[in-house]
């Protein structure tokens, strides 16, 4: 925390993504300059980020998401490539435990026709989200400081926890939503899926009401998935930020909250995985 910063600006700064997008011609930048023509650039203020519209990318969270996805893939691939049935070594042991755990969860929860996609999907979700959440345990100023130093701009916006970005969590949950619809139609046919949405719980004389009810319950799934993960991690990050403003007193508090947070990040990754399995299991079931 540098001199001359208020708590509000400190926190706001930390909650702003590093956005890369196109600013329209004639736009007045944050520093007062007016650009002649449409320019692809990094946003220098939250307002600029908003004005870039939909076709902009959160470079920081997207980048960390990809990096962590690659870390996950590399770690697991390295083990998978030389997986053998003999006595497993350290990393293989850990990863096999994870795979076995996910496999058990899927087998216990998912009763649909066995599908090759569900278990790897669950593993990817669990590990990837866990890695993303794990970023929350790094000191909140560490990576922004490094990024600022590397880029030469000490006030660079830099969010390091991808799951505190709703774009990332909705990216997961919308993909899951698409899979829910896909499997519902694949297993039950279009008619079956539409019937499921309209013909119960109250029979065919209440079709509009049924549709409203079932439609809401269907749409709630991705929204609740994404918001639960986002909310938990966003709140956790916020508390880390508040603790970080306490000067030397932050050390013991930071430790306590970090220990507690270990539970949260694991739990949130697990909940996201389990609910995905449950939703996809429901999509596989012939109801009523």
């Amino acid at each position: 925390m540098s001199e001359g910063l208020t708590s509000t600006s400190y926190i706001k700064h930390h909650l702003q993504n590093l956005v890369y997008g196109k600013l329209p011609a004639g736009y007045e930048r944050a520093d007062g300059t007016v650009i002649e023509q449409g320019t692809w650039t990094l946003a220098h203020s939250p307002r600029e980020a908003v004005d870039m519209g939909f076709w902009a990318v959160n470079v920081d969270t997207m980048g960390w998401s990809l990096v962590l996805g690659l870390v996950f893939s590399y770690l697991f691939y390295r083990v998978a490539r030389q997986a053998h049935a003999g006595v497993p070594g350290g990393l293989q042991n850990l990863i096999e435990t994870l795979v076995g755990f996910v496999d058990k969860c899927v087998k216990e929860t998912f009763h649909g026709r066995s599908d090759k996609l569900i278990a790897p999907l669950a593993l990817t979700i669990f590990c990837w989200i866990f890695f993303m959440n794990l970023m929350d345990l790094l000191p909140v100023d560490l990576l922004p400081l490094v990024a600022g130093w590397l880029s030469g701009n000490p006030h660079l916006y830099f969010k390091v926890v991808p799951t505190t970005d709703p774009n990332i969590t909705f990216g997961f949950s919308l993909s899951v939503f698409i899979l829910i619809v896909f499997y519902s139609i694949k297993i039950k046919g279009i008619g079956g899926f539409v019937g499921e949405l309209t013909l119960h719980p109250f029979g065919k004389w209440m079709i509009p009401f049924n549709f409203l009810l079932e439609g809401v319950s269907l749409l709630t799934k991705p929204v609740s998935l994404a918001l639960r993960l986002f909310g938990n991690l966003y709140a956790g990050e916020l508390i880390f930020l508040l603790i970080a403003m306490l000067g030397y007193w932050q050390l013991p508090l930071h430790f306590v909250w970090a220990v507690f947070h270990i539970l949260i990040i694991t739990l949130q990754a697990f909940i996201f995985m389990m609910l995905t399995i449950v939703y996809l299991g429901m999509a596989h079931e012939e109801l009523h």
């Binding site: 993504n17 956005v19 997008g21 980020a49 908003v50 870039m52 519209g53 939909f54 076709w55 902009a56 990318v57 959160n58 969270t61 997207m62 998401s65 970005d165 709703p166 774009n167 990332i168 909705f170 990216g171 997961f172 919308l174 993909s175």
Partner: peptide, 10 residues
């Protein structure tokens, strides 16, 4: 603030 990150993530 939703943007193309959503699609990138998907």
């Amino acid at each position: 603030n939703f943007n193309a990150t959503l699609i990138g993530q998907m």
